[in-house]
């Protein structure tokens, strides 16, 4: 009987802590505990890690990271429910079926402006200027194949398209402007077969020769790993994907020191640097935290 009552009490206390946790948590140093969200891609994980390291180094606050969210809609949903305070997102997402009156453009600046405006208003967030690297969506093929046939651009690829199988993520086939439909319209050809699949398996597929061309992010380390080459987007079809950190407005309004940190992360990573960081994590299997820390130390932003 005694133990039962004890158990009940412990459970009750636990419940209270959890309920309290849903409100404002307090960090070990007496600051706030924030939450930062990242999707499955490694560069986003690195970006929020950079933020976390700096915030925890320079302020009393802490940041919990929620990783591996399936895609951007889940991240925005989190902002809407006040579950997330920060995230790493791409400007091109603004064309991803969120807004009816957005104007499709492949100009990086225009895309960024639109993302900052539309997402900023819709979700009450601040969309910072990009971290510096570009991680465009694009199409790649085996270097050997391209060299043999002397193909360098997506236009030139059209000649071989009807004998090629494309592997891509499940969403690209369904997208309008910046998806396969738009691609076919812009370049005027389609592949023999286009299959949506898991991104990791997609690389497996091109490695074994089951696939001939794949959609990739230009910073994917697998490009190097599997000896793939990104084809030049001669018709400027793919929208620019510039990564920015975003923050909930109420957080940066209240905590100016965090706003400063976010500002300091603008334009600090070049595309080359990011490719290298991702390579260390994905191929060399190092911890995101270590890689991010090393990078900040090299930049002199962290001791």
């Amino acid at each position: 009987m005694m133990t039962f009552r004890k158990l009940f009490l412990v459970g009750f206390v636990l419940l209270l802590t959890i309920v309290a946790g849903c409100g404002d948590k307090t960090s070990a140093d007496g600051g706030q505990v924030f939450t930062a969200a990242s999707a499955k891609n490694t560069d986003s994980k690195i970006n929020v890690q950079l933020l976390k390291l700096l915030v925890e180094d320079r302020t009393d606050h802490e940041i919990d990271i929620v990783e591996d969210l399936p895609a951007s809609p889940q991240i925005f949903a989190g902002f809407e429910r006040d579950e997330f305070d920060f995230a790493s997102l791409f400007s091109g997402e603004v064309y991803n079926n969120y807004f009816d009156d957005v104007e499709y453009s492949t100009d990086p600046d225009k895309t960024l402006k639109q993302a900052q405006k539309f997402f900023g208003e819709e979700y009450d967030i601040k969309w910072y200027d990009p971290l510096g690297y570009v991680n465009n969506y694009s199409i790649a093929a085996k270097r050997k194949f391209l060299q043999k046939n002397d193909v360098n651009t997506l236009t030139e690829l059209g000649e071989y398209a009807d004998s090629l199988t494309l592997g891509t993520d499940n969403a690209w086939i369904e997208r309008d402007n910046d998806g396969y439909k738009g691609f076919k319209k812009t370049y005027g050809y389609e592949f023999d077969d286009a299959r949506g699949m898991d991104v990791a398996l997609m690389y497996e597929g091109i490695d074994t020769g089951e696939l001939d061309v794949v959609t990739v992010y230009t910073v994917d380390p697998q490009l190097k790993e599997y000896d793939l080459k990104v084809l030049e987007d001669t018709k400027n079809f793919f929208p620019p994907y510039e990564a920015s950190l975003v923050a909930a407005n109420d957080v940066i309004d209240e905590y100016g020191e965090i706003n400063d940190i976010l500002q300091s992360l603008v334009d600090v990573v070049s595309t080359e640097e990011m490719t290298n960081l991702i390579y260390q994590v994905d191929i060399e299997k190092r911890e995101v935290m270590e890689v991010a820390k090393e990078f900040l130390q090299e930049k002199g932003m962290l001791d």
């Binding site: 399936p70 895609a71 951007s72 809609p73 889940q74 991803n96 079926n97 969120y98 592997g167 993520d169 499940n170 969403a171 690209w172 086939i173 369904e174 997208r175 998806g179 299959r195 949506g196 699949m197 898991d198 398996l201 597929g205």
Partner: peptide, 24 residues
């Protein structure tokens, strides 16, 4: 099956997740 390029309703679901489309 959608993960390995065989299509099926998983394709629709995953596309919906990536493409921000609840209907899918």
């Amino acid at each position: 099956a959608a993960l390995i390029g065989a299509g099926g309703l998983g394709d629709l679901i995953l596309a919906g997740i990536g493409y921000n489309d609840t209907f899918m």
